[in-house]
Design a protein around this nucleic acid. Sequence first.
RNA 1: GCGUCCGUAGCUCAACCGGAUAGAGCACUCGCCUUCUAAGCGAGCGGUUGCAGGUUCGAGUCCUGCCGGACGCGCCA
Length: 586
Amino acid sequence: MSDLKRRLTGVVSAAFATCGLPPELGRVTVSDRPDLADFQCNGALAAAKAARANPRALAEQVVAQLVDDPHFSRVEIAGPGFINLTLNLDVLTERARQLAQDERCGAEVLAQPRRVVVDYGGPNVAKPMHVGHLRASIIGESIKRLFRFRGDQVWGDAHFGDWGFQMGLLILAVGDEQPQSPFMQDTDGPFPDESPVSLADLERLYPMAASRAKTDPDYRDRARRATAELQNGRKGYRALWKHFVDVSRMALEREFNALDIRFDLWNGESDADPLIPEMVSELDARGLLVADQGARIIRVARDGDKRELPPLLVVSSEGSAMYGTTDLATILDRRRKIDPDLVLYVVDQRQADHFEQVFRAAVMAEYAPQGSLEHIGFGTMNGADGKPFKTREGGVLKLHDLIEMARDKARARLHEAGLGAELSPAEFEETAHRVAVAALKFADLGNFRGTSYVFDLDRFMSFEGKTGPYLLYQSVRIKSLLRKGAEQGVTAAEITVAEPAERELALALDAFETALAEAYAKRAPNIIAEHAYRLAQTFSKFYAACPILVAEPVSLRPSRLAFATATLAQMETTLRLLGIETPDRM
RNA sequence: GCGUCCGUAGCUCAACCGGAUAGAGCACUCGCCUUCUAAGCGAGCGGUUGCAGGUUCGAGUCCUGCCGGACGCGCCA
């Protein structure tokens, strides 16, 4: 089943071809002037430019091919050569009926699915997630869902920060507090199954150790040795490290669950570590590694670069692996285990240069084909001052606290509005939670990912305007309507498009596939968010203009109800692609 | 210094391969609840798209320069 835009593009392209014009110019888009037409084609202008001809004359030729086409009730030329297309009502009605029947709400399935890894979230052992993780998680989750929904086989990987110097710091800190701990004994074990540290311990010890390492060179050296011993396989350290990972991961998963973010893989930096020695020798054998200032690097600069890109540091002067090393090894690891066609790195825009270095090195090493690695960068979440978001005290706000703030606000707003009074306490909490998550996610995904945005909880949490709560409200209103319809025994039947508001709603429903295709191509969830809002607003207009359960004559009711059912289904599908779940009541 | 991104309504943001009258939301003004959730709907107000050139029939979009801002630039990730 194809959406109208694609179908009409086929029709108009054929007309272009008949006129001896390039068929690809027959591309049809939704009209910029809904007052004039439903769809338009600007191809005559482009054709005229290429052929140095009169655009209106070309448009007239094309239109002559289209005027009798049953898809259209009107085909007109406007301005310098725009072709305006107004749909035949029967065509729109037929499409609306298809949409209402379709399990996928009008979304198509990719003809050629790919294997895709989405690397996002980036949580770290022992470090609580903060607002910086929010965007990576929200955007990555949405992109993962979008790719999967379109038909790709997708792995969402948390890319857990579980290796390196930070682990040495933690081991050292635990050892200083618990010198008698069996984990500190350099033996073959066995070691306790019980973790010697709680999450609270980790959150206390890590910042302490990290700051001490900055000022105390001896401490830093001991931590480095501990890191090296861990990586060399000291049994007690390994066992202790496993506890760090497990304790952290459990806490992080709780956090992610609260945001409806689910990973398929929790591969960490440690998983790539075993590959590093062979990778280094292989890179060396290929002649890619160069000794420089005591380190071993890969030069990735190219002629024609506007400026010299620094080399990728593979082995530091101290002989250790750097984060670029781990990233490169991870590419190799994924190729062996998954063999993806595409890997998307949903990471802060500020790391663009780093990924450019790694990707170039990976292509040079033939670990990944050109173009199969993409950095999906995003801007920062800023405070009211336009600078990256900080708490009032100037510290970093923990994600957990942020969510709690949002939930508090949601509860307050619900109470203010006198909503949810009839809900049980548990249902009320669930609703408040969903409102909070919807507000945070929609505020984030409503903007193009590349731009930074200003965090303003009051604005996000408003139930009016372009917000998550507004979208939930519209969905809930439809659910309420459908419940009432069921009680009254009204059943949905075939849609008939008649009223202007119905026509507009049918067109809005049809636009779903176009929005998904564009969001997919640009890796831009804001396009899905935009569609959700447009759909909600168009439905609301329909709701105001067209009575449903009380429509007269009663024969209108089944069609109107079918519109409502189809809208709800598509709305929930759309919101789910943004990672937003709707409550049943509010 | 070099590089990347950005500058659109009072505020927060959109704008499909260069196309018509640059769109939304908030705020502000007016209208609409004895019909399905008014957390809604309708109407209005609001713009020299940072500045100056250039390419084009046509530029927020492409090119050049300038002004202003954010970020990045080898052993942290």
